[in-house]
Amino acid sequence: MAPALIVFDLDGTLLDTHADLVESLNHTIAALKLAPVRYEDLTHLVGHGAKVMIERACRLQGHPLTDEELPALLNRFIAHYTQNMPGKTHPYPGLIRSMEHLKSKGYRFAVCTNKLEGLARTLLDRLQLTSHFDAITGGDTFAMRKPDAGHLLGTIERAGGDPSRCVMIGDSINDILVARNAGIPSIAVPFGYSDVPVATLEPTTIISHFDELTSDLIEELLRSANSAFANGVVANTRHS
């Protein structure tokens, strides 16, 4: 049996990035003399990449963007965010310990994020985490992005994984939906940036700490998912 591949979202799942995202976002919209956003606003802003985050922040502060304004603001955000990485960003408690334990059992890892791939790779490089992952894909890696199943399935392919031996872990609706659309079990974490309780997103299961991410849990999820698929209980696109 092939080793299972565990695919992580980045912001709000692998890494607590909120302080640096807010700082760079406020630096960006200051060019328009807009009031800063707060951490409490972040859950309504993130999840679809930097462009959408900037657009939403400007709209929230009463300034809907024109098409002409966005490119310069995006460049301003990327420059500030990149220059200050990793800043205050850090892995969530228990993550590295859990990954090292699972790696010793043959499990492999990938990242599937709507963050620009270049930003994701730079951040993981500076945190010295890149070597943990067999693939890192972003919102601009493919022609589609989460929650389109193609983003997750493309990530699995790049990592050399098998969709029938894969689990997706995330903190937001896009993560749960991309897993559902790809016919892959999902694990939600409640400590990220979802603007609703993650239980309402109906993930396959929820863990409150990475200490709960065990091989027993992963194998049980995979057995249940593949049994349901074999019995025709769930619509599954993973073999298409």
Rank of each mutant, 00 (worst) to 15 (best):
A4Q: 05
V7C: 15
F8P: 01
L10F: 06
D11N: 05
L15I: 15
D20L: 06
S24V: 08
N26S: 05
N26K: 09
N26G: 06
H27N: 02
I29K: 09
I29W: 07
I29G: 07
L32K: 13
L34K: 13
A35D: 14
V37S: 06
E40S: 14
L45S: 06
V46F: 09
G47R: 03
A50C: 07
I54N: 02
E55C: 11
E55V: 13
C58M: 04
C58Q: 10
R59S: 14
L60E: 12
L60C: 11
H63R: 15
P71N: 11
A72P: 12
F77E: 02
T82D: 13
Q83S: 09
N84C: 11
K88V: 04
P91L: 01
G94E: 02
G94I: 00
L95H: 03
R97M: 03
R97I: 00
M99K: 01
L102F: 02
K103C: 05
Y107T: 08
T113Q: 04
L116E: 08
E117A: 11
L119K: 12
L124N: 09
D125P: 00
D125W: 03
R126A: 12
L127C: 02
Q128D: 15
T130P: 08
T130A: 14
H132M: 15
F133H: 03
G138A: 11
F142N: 11
A143C: 14
A143M: 14
A143I: 14
D148F: 04
D148V: 00
G150Q: 12
G154L: 12
E157Y: 00
G161Y: 08
D162N: 15
R165S: 03
C166Y: 05
C166S: 10
V167R: 00
M168K: 10
D171I: 00
S172R: 15
I173T: 13
I173E: 14
I176C: 03
I176H: 01
L177T: 11
R180H: 12
N181E: 15
A188F: 01
P190T: 04
F191W: 13
G192I: 01
G192F: 11
D195T: 00
V196S: 00
P197H: 01
A199S: 15
L201A: 02
L201Y: 00
L201I: 02
T205P: 03
D211S: 15
E219L: 05
L222H: 04
N226W: 03
S227M: 10
S227H: 12
N231K: 14
G232H: 08
T237K: 09
T237A: 14
